[in-house]
Amino acid sequence: MTDSRTARGGKRERLVAGAAELLHRQGVAATTLADVAHAADVPVGNIYYYFKTKDDLVRAVIEAQVGQVDAMLGALAELSGPAERLTALVRRWEQMRDLVARYGCPFGTLTAELDRRDDGLDIEAARPIRRILEWMEIQLQNLGHRDARELATALFAGVQGGALLTSALRDPELMSGQVRHLERWIDTLAAPP
């Protein structure tokens, strides 16, 4: 027989999930290991069994984000073509528009916060974004674009810019409007020359 804590996953998984949520909502600087332990329903002393430092826990969150990105992109591979896959990806930000309006993009906010550091964690934090950009570039290459890298950068900048404005102005409709704009742009990219 399992209790609700066991059903929610092992301690390490709960710690990483709790940390991911807190880092997104509060930021790295404002989140303590005690906050994470409480959110994960794990005794504070146990956290050190899994993570020696807060940076180790942040690395685990980044690794979890990479896993989430890989799973998301894997699911999008089921769609029929590159334009449909790009559109579905962009729509993911609209699906979380209320969360984005309050706390920003989970990938973008963590990357921006850690970018001020110069200890390697700043580079690691960008891994989920790099994965998405590389995937977008492949989709745009499959649409026949020689400038796929530049187009992928512009497309993801459109998503992240929309997320930043949505969060700054606390207006979920901005994200929806930006997604609609990007969908139309993807349609033009998919149109035969």
Rank of each mutant, 00 (worst) to 15 (best):
Q160K: 12
S4K: 06
D3Y: 07
L57F: 09
I186P: 15
E84P: 04
A154R: 15
L164Q: 13
P82A: 13
G81L: 06
P192A: 14
A83V: 11
L15E: 07
L189C: 13
G45V: 03
L22Y: 03
W135G: 02
V66L: 01
D187I: 05
M96S: 07
T2I: 11
A17E: 13
L110A: 04
I186L: 11
G108K: 11
D171F: 00
L121C: 10
L73S: 01
G177P: 09
D171T: 08
K52D: 13
F156R: 10
L140V: 13
D187A: 15
T53V: 04
F51T: 04
L174P: 02
G108W: 11
A83Q: 07
G9I: 06
Q95D: 15
A39K: 12
R117H: 11
L121N: 09
A17K: 14
R130E: 10
A29E: 15
P106Y: 10
A20M: 07
Q160F: 12
V100C: 07
V66A: 04
T2V: 10
V16H: 09
W93S: 10
G45T: 07
A71T: 05
L110P: 08
G67H: 01
G177L: 13
F51D: 01
A126N: 11
A75H: 10
S4N: 01
L89E: 09
R149I: 00
A71V: 00
L76A: 03
M72V: 01
A125P: 06
A17I: 03
F107G: 00
I47Q: 02
I47H: 06
E13V: 08
L121Q: 08
R97W: 04
Q141P: 00
T111M: 13
L22R: 06
L114C: 12
T6I: 05
T31L: 06
N142Q: 15
M136R: 06
Q141H: 09
D187E: 15
T6N: 02
L99E: 12
R59E: 15
P106W: 08
D3P: 01
A112F: 12
A157D: 13
F107L: 12
T6L: 11
D122I: 02
T87F: 05
Q160M: 15
G108R: 10
P128E: 07
S80N: 14
Y50D: 04
R146C: 00
D70N: 05
E84M: 08
I186T: 13
E137Y: 03
L99N: 02
P193M: 02
P106K: 03
K52Y: 05
R5S: 05
G104T: 04
P82R: 10
M96V: 10
D41A: 12
T166A: 03
I186K: 11
W185D: 06
T188W: 14
R180Q: 15
A126S: 13
G120L: 11
A112Y: 11
E78M: 03
T32P: 00
M96T: 12
T153K: 07
A191M: 12
I62N: 05
G144I: 05
L79D: 05
M72E: 09
E124I: 01
D122F: 03
T6K: 12
D56Y: 04
T32E: 06
R102I: 00
I62M: 02
E113C: 06
L143Q: 10
R131E: 13
